[in-house]
Simulated scan of single mutants.
Amino acid sequence: MAPQPCTWCNRTPSTSSGSEQTAFKVCGACNLVFYCSTGCQKSDWKYHKLVCKQYGGSMSSTPRPSQLYKLALVFPIDTDSPAFR
């Protein structure tokens, strides 16, 4: 499985020859988004908090069949709430 990039800056975890992958921080509420630093996590929070609870619930109720499937945030014109697909 490919390492997940930072949700905020899109940096990927680095590995040096023979060493372990750099551990990224993960959102403690949904456990689905990754951050390379506390700064990136704080910068993203004002956006991520809008969907965090729904994001976590959506993924646990309908998990992806494989890592090749991506989650999309849809903004339907007939409702006020975004939906995950």
Rank of each mutant, 00 (worst) to 15 (best):
Q67A: 06
C36I: 00
Q54A: 15
Q21I: 13
P82A: 12
M1I: 04
T7C: 04
A29C: 06
C9D: 06
F75E: 08
L73Y: 03
P82S: 11
F75C: 09
P82E: 10
S66H: 02
T79S: 15
P3L: 01
W45P: 02
S61C: 07
M59C: 08
E20A: 14
Y35N: 01
G39E: 13
V74Y: 12
W8A: 07
P76G: 08
V33I: 15
C30E: 12
A29K: 15
L32G: 10
A23H: 07
G39F: 02
T38A: 12
I77K: 12
P65W: 05
D80R: 11
G56E: 07
Y35F: 12
P65A: 14
T15D: 01
A72R: 15
P65Y: 01
C30A: 07
I77E: 14
R11M: 09
P5F: 09
P65G: 08
K46T: 15
L73A: 07
S37I: 02
F84V: 03
N10A: 11
F75K: 13
Y47S: 13
L73F: 02
R11H: 05
A2P: 11
Y69V: 06
S81M: 13
L73P: 03
Q21H: 03
C30T: 13
T15Y: 00
G18A: 08
Q21S: 12
P63F: 03
